[in-house]
């Protein structure tokens, strides 16, 4: 696969992963999904899948570059993804409901 596609996928995965981490926190879950209960998706489950997504992102980065470079790309992509998640939560929190497979809060 071309390198750009792999890197893009890694960026998306870190975004999704951090989104799940955010949803694992009660306050952000309420922002995104309102009063709907988490149901089968526990906070722990969200954190776990978040961790898996971030790990996958790292693996993709390692496919493209020398390990030293891949590590930096990964860490910096986390910073960028965290900013995007935070700003989404401030202005369009219900978009994150997508990640929880829930209808947005109303």
């Amino acid at each position: 696969m071309p390198e750009n596609v792999l890197l893009l996928a890694a960026l998306l995965l870190s975004l999704i992963g951090l989104g799940w981490f955010a949803l694992a926190l009660d306050v952000h879950w309420k922002q995104a999904c309102g009063k709907q209960a988490r149901g089968v998706v526990s906070a722990r489950g969200l954190r776990l899948s978040g961790g898996v997504a971030l790990a996958l992102a790292l693996i993709l980065c390692l496919q493209v570059d020398h390990p030293t470079m891949a590590a930096l790309v990964w860490i910096m992509s986390l910073a960028g993804a965290a900013l995007i998640v935070a700003f989404t939560l401030s202005w369009r929190p219900h978009w994150l409901a997508l990640l929880a497979a829930r209808p947005p809060r109303r």
Partner: peptide
């Protein structure tokens, strides 16, 4: 970590942004 509350007071939202930009990077 993901907290930025632009609708709260100036002081609060500025501090949120300060923490957010400081911590994520």
């Amino acid at each position: 970590l993901f907290t930025f509350r632009p609708k709260k007071s100036n002081q609060r939202s500025i501090l949120d942004l300060h923490n957010l930009t400081g911590v994520v990077a």
